[in-house]
Amino acid sequence: MSRKQLDMTLLVLAVAVCFALPLVITSPTYLQILILLFFYAYLTTAWNLVGGFAGVLPLGHSVFVGIGAYTSTILSNQYGVSPWIGMLAGGVIAAFVGVLIGKPTFRMRGAYFALCTIAFAEGIRVMIENIDSIGPIKINGPRGLLIPLKGDSFWNYQFMHKEPYYYIILTMLLLVVALTWFISRSRMGYYLAAGGEEPEAAQALGINVARYKLISMAMSCFLTALAGTFYAQLMLYFYPKGLLGLDLSFEIAFIALIGGRGTIAGPVIGALALRPLNEFTRIYLGSQLPGLHLVIFGTILILVMLFQPKGLTPPLARLYDKFAARITGEGGAK
């Protein structure tokens, strides 16, 4: 068996296991945990397009999740448009807004860019919390929006069981990971990597760094907004502080950084490592010691940054290399 065959076999096996899981795990609680795990992995992979490949640190991506959720929900609640169509509309708006913020801020250095994205996201959150309605469009301020139950219906993006949501988000995750894989091997991927590491040098070689950063930002924002619609349809309720707050933006960035920023597997590995930890410490420790789970979270963050500043992916990749070398019998790990 060659290395390539081994990689493919394991990948197909992993995907098959993911698709078969709901046959074994029938408890809605555990399915919900898995759905949220994939949801975070998806969001982080989308974030990684700009935060990882373009080499900047956006800390306000929750605003795009919010744009997706608000757009599709307003369209379906008040105008009867299917959330599937609203989802695309939200994506387009998010991409537009992303370019609007990206254009002036991408010139800035890392710290400024991070602070600007925070300020922008917080500004939008505060505004939405203050607006009850814009003309005929109901926003509901801090109370958020509720999606009325319409029963099982694909067209209305509503399901009585968790399984359909599970398969939707799993498919979305697989597609977005495949997309990152293609981009990282394309001309654009190399340009982005070059622009992120050495913007001046890349520019000198004739690469229009700003343009490729903007394209990656637009793609990332579009994909992030799609997940916003998913979240709205899964929960059927959301409010600005929960959806647009800094907590979500930061968690996305943390998952990417702990998993391995700028790698394809990083966001998935990060979500696999952090989400269960987050859920279980919150469930089992949250009631006795509020805050303990976040102390653990913060400590892990510090430790990973101190001992594996590139995230968990590189050491895991080395382990896998060793394992693969043993299986295939090809020379030692290099």
Binding site: L57, V295, L301
Partner: peptide
């Protein structure tokens, strides 16, 4: 990360400190 002018890793470490301190105070 000596050669990096603005190591973003440091931002993340300080964010970790933020989470730890705030939630220790909460506990």
């Amino acid at each position: 990360e000596q050669q990096v002018r603005e190591p973003l890793t440091v931002i993340i470490v300080t964010t970790g400190v933020w989470y730890v301190l705030d939630n220790l105070a909460l506990m």
